[in-house]
Write a protein that binds this DNA or RNA. Structure first.
Ligand SMILES: [Mn+2]
Ligand SMILES: [Mn+2]
Ligand SMILES: [Mn+2]
Ligand SMILES: [Mn+2]
Lengths: 219, 219
DNA sequence: AACTATTTTTAGATTTGTCTAAATTTTAAT
DNA sequence: ATTAAAATTTAGACAAATCTAAAAATAGTT
């Protein structure tokens, strides 16, 4: 199926939103994600519905069809594999990869993505800890909870970030937190929700907001 | 400078044509290269002239300006670096790389291309023997002549191809000719211009057409 | 020099994706 | 059940890149 750049981006946006909410995606949410107007989103929704990539009933939002889901997942797969490539092979840092991956995800070549996958040794997560769909659009997401949900004394391994905002990722770099490190909750401040965590033999204070955006797997 | 996909492709086509001919590029040649109509080429020429990427006088064809040349060369640079990447890192053969490189050449990221260059160890030619412009748009092309220009008894190293048609490249694969091998002219057939060459301890007959499309450096 | 063939440009139409403004439907609140 | 607010769709316009058909300019030939 021939897809335009715009169609691919809309499908991916629908995929990302519905993965979070689980419900039909509203026109306004979609328009916001695409940084465009609701009327433009409606136009594109009609086109995608016409091509049977989404199910659409007026005023009721859209859901991906089987085929729409597969296409969207393949774009997300490419996006995340390219992010791994940029970090692992081209010395990008995790706050630099997204914009370039936004472009690379639209390159059309099955062989390219298969070989890239092999070159990278079949990674299962991207540099932000997000799962990489396989070629059938399936993901096996590991259980992860926000650091903020841990109680005093509990430990966890850092496995992902909720926000991928540059400032947040750079902040984590600055306080030397990266995926894979182990942390222990030493103290929680009831007043502002900040936590004191122990890692790398240091104790540091982490704001409530940062703790809510850092995913860990309990250990 | 923000360039559309189409503008980039036109600039590259102008670059490729004028590199061969040395003269101003005619509307018809440009349209042919872009697989479009002359009227469309005229429209785009006007836009490129407006942006000072080409010098244009009605009915006289176009020439790249300094800036136009730099942009075009940077696209060719990206195209050829990606071709090297595909062959060296992703197991593509030299007849498979072009279509994918046509897409990859439009990815915008200075860091990406610098790092790619380094990953590939700063190659100077692409898989077809074509020179890779440096970041200032300069190339140092090595002297190369068609195999057909060699006389009986002369030797040469295979350094490039004139045609990059799939069938030709696959034919070269089949007769085990690749860049870097050394050949010697054993005999030339006056009748049809074919040549008998010695390489890899074998003698093989190569048609006039193939010999005209295979570049060698005399040794 | 005049005529013809070729090349190039112009004029007007089409498609894609977007926008603004207005109309419609749904939702939430009296 | 009405009414007000919010969300969504429709209508009409626009810019980018293309096309066809017609007009204009150039090049080639007698
Ligand atoms: Mn990303
Ligand atoms: Mn990511
Ligand atoms: Mn190529
Ligand atoms: Mn090439």
């Amino acid at each position: 199926m021939l897809m335009t750049l715009s169609e691919e981006n809309y499908l991916k946006a629908i995929y990302n939103i519905s993965t979070k909410t689980g419900e039909a995606v509203s026109t306004n949410l979609l328009a916001e994600a695409m940084e465009t107007k609701a009327s433009s989103a409606t136009d594109m929704i009609k086109k995608l519905a016409e091509k049977d990539f989404v199910n659409y009933k007026k005023y009721q939002g859209v859901k991906l069809t089987k085929e729409g889901h597969l296409i969207a997942a393949s774009i997300v797969r490419k996006h995340r594999l390219w992010e791994v490539f940029l970090v692992e092979k081209l010395n990008f840092s995790w706050d630099e990869v997204h914009e370039v991956a936004e472009q690379l995800e639209h390159i059309k070549s099955d062989k390219l993505i298969e070989e890239l996958d092999a070159l990278l040794d079949f990674p299962r997560v991207d540099p932000h800890g997000d799962p990489i769909p396989n070629k059938y659009g399936e993901i096996q997401a590991k259980k992860k909870v926000p650091l903020s949900s841990l109680k005093v004394g509990e430990k966890g391994v850092c496995v992902g970030v909720k926000s991928t905002a540059k400032e947040f990722l750079q902040y984590l770099d600055k306080i030397e937190i990266s995926l894979g490190i182990e942390l222990e909750i030493i103290e929680k401040e009831a007043f502002d929700g900040s936590v004191i965590v122990l890692y790398k033999d240091q104790q540091k204070n982490i704001s409530a907001m940062a703790a809510a955006n850092l995913y860990v797997r309990k250990t």
